[in-house]
Design a protein around this nucleic acid. Structure first.
Lengths: 255, 255
DNA sequence: CGTGCCAGGTGCCCT
DNA sequence: AGGGCACTTGGCACG
């Protein structure tokens, strides 16, 4: 599993170790001196240095430098990964299956090596994504406006996909666009596209926790409306409706 | 550095080990049973399971599951990271400095632990980015068209930033937009914005290795032009002009 | 800080 | 495959 002595192995044995980990689809972590080349949509070359290399159980591939959030090289799965021997190094070739892209890595020495099957059955829940917000609004249309009635969500129009389509208390057709972050000019443009296609007599509301000044100006100029929604309030609704004892609420209580 | 025996340590000692690695700004890799919660622009909760946790020297933070390219949780640097003790677990709290976001991780046991300073001075070179293409064109305007003369690149207009502004052989003002991948409708829209702002009598050329049928239709309808450029050809020009013996060319020759 | 735009963006869903 | 769009998008440059 963990092999701190990997540098005492011959290149052949090291290659065999990696090959075996790959064939049994284990999760592989290597901290090593390496150099890497990418050829695909663009080209890149990374000179020698110490990095973290990760090969996941589904062949996802990542090279991380000692700083910066983003990987310096990567390959989305599925990949075909092969091992060979070079001059004083093990050569890792990672080819994407669905696209003509490859990363070739030369590994010269190791500072750390790990390979094992990881058991991860825990589920992941994301809250307050735009999709979830629109689901909440579907259940609670009064949060948009009193007397609001939702006709459809994710409605496919030529101009794009309208988040929420409904009728207000006075019977006017209304388009609602949700933005979970601060709405910018692009959000307003998006709404404008829908309104122009929908024709006259259609209301449009941009629903978001905040809006930039420029975006609000553009919005007013075009007769659109803005309504602030509190994400905190929405999250309370979620919590309230989660009657079942979730592991999240246990976590929050510190159990 | 590598500690395969971390599970024999007490929680207090484990916490101290991590705390020390953090304070000396080492690169930390943990393969561990954990559960994680994110609160910020959205909220998420990740139930117990085995994952890879990475803390980089600049406090970049990542949690990776055994499959999928993208991390399940992350925090871009800079972060403030603190350690405390919970029930049967070590609690890691990662707070972003510039935004109100945090990830809280409860770690229950370890399968692997690594912490060390990594030495990575190798430089990284990316070729054929849009910027680099525009630089090549600046040196070789004949690749756009015979007799083409470039006036400016990255020109800031109200409608946006024009990649290349120039004059063709017949003296007409011409806008050139570069797309390094297949050009879609959005690329055409971008060019249209520039042309409409520039007024009449202005040519516009979309330069890209390929174009989608829909985008080409829209382009023709609006009197714009499309010119195919071969990325391979451009890459040959780069290679030719790199007279200095780069580590990339050595790599390519297999040395 | 907002605005624009690129990225080897990735991922998801739909036609 | 192509379109449309969200993403805790991240990242950069500029006013």
């Amino acid at each position: 599993m963990i092999n701190a002595m990997i540098n005492t192995l011959s290149l052949q044995d090291t290659a065999e170790l990696i090959r075996e980990a790959l064939s049994s689809r284990r999760f592989i972590v290597m901290i090593c001196m390496c150099e890497a080349q990418y050829i695909g949509r663009a080209r890149s070359f990374l000179e020698k240095g110490e990095r973290l290399i990760v090969i996941k159980e589904d062949t996802s591939f990542l090279i991380h430098r000692p700083t910066e959030l983003e990987p310096v090289n990567w390959q989305p799965p599925p990949n075909h990964i092969s091992i060979s021997l070079g001059e004083n190094c093990v050569i890792l070739t990672v080819r994407r299956v669905r696209k003509p892209e490859r990363v070739v890595v030369k590994i010269y020495s190791f500072k750390g090596f790990f390979s094992d099957k990881l058991s991860d059955n825990g589920s992941f829940h994301m809250h307050l994504s735009e999709k979830e917000i629109s689901e909440i609004l579907r259940k609670h249309p009064e949060l948009i406006e009193d007397g609001f009635r939702i006709v459809s969500t994710e409605f496919r129009e030529k101009a794009g996909i309208i988040d929420v389509l409904g009728v207000d208390a006075k019977g006017r057709r209304t388009i609602v666009e949700i933005k979970k972050d601060k709405a910018g000019k692009d959000a307003v443009k998006q709404v404008l596209r829908y309104v122009r296609e929908a024709g006259t007599g259609v209301r449009a509301i941009l629903l978001s926790p905040n809006i930039t000044p420029e975006a609000e100006k553009m919005l007013r100029k075009n007769g659109l409306e803005f309504k602030k929604i509190s994400m905190l309030e929405l999250s309370r609704i979620i919590t309230y409706e989660e009657h079942s004892e979730s592991s999240m609420s246990r976590f929050l209580r510190g159990e």
